[in-house]
Amino acid sequence: MGKFFKLAGLAVVIALAIALAVVAGDYGPWYFAWLVGTTMIVLIAAAGAVLFDTQEPNSNGKV
């Protein structure tokens, strides 16, 4: 049941995101670009950090 609610919640979020993307894409292409761009920038930065950890698996950092 808990899983069902999680999936349902996720579905709602996705539906909202798609609706937002359609509206923003139609009326405000720049706003749409910001949404996509910011998500991308954050993900790229996060990916860089993850990559860092795989580059030095035996580093003496505190884990």
Binding site: G37, M40, I41, I44, G48, S59
Partner: peptide, 21 residues
């Protein structure tokens, strides 16, 4: 070192995309 190198990495990638945009 560990702290700074990771912060630098994230900031540099964050910055390169942003500055081109």
């Amino acid at each position: 070192k560990e702290f700074a190198a990771r912060s630098f990495r994230m900031a540099a990638l964050f910055g390169i995309v942003s500055s081109m945009a």
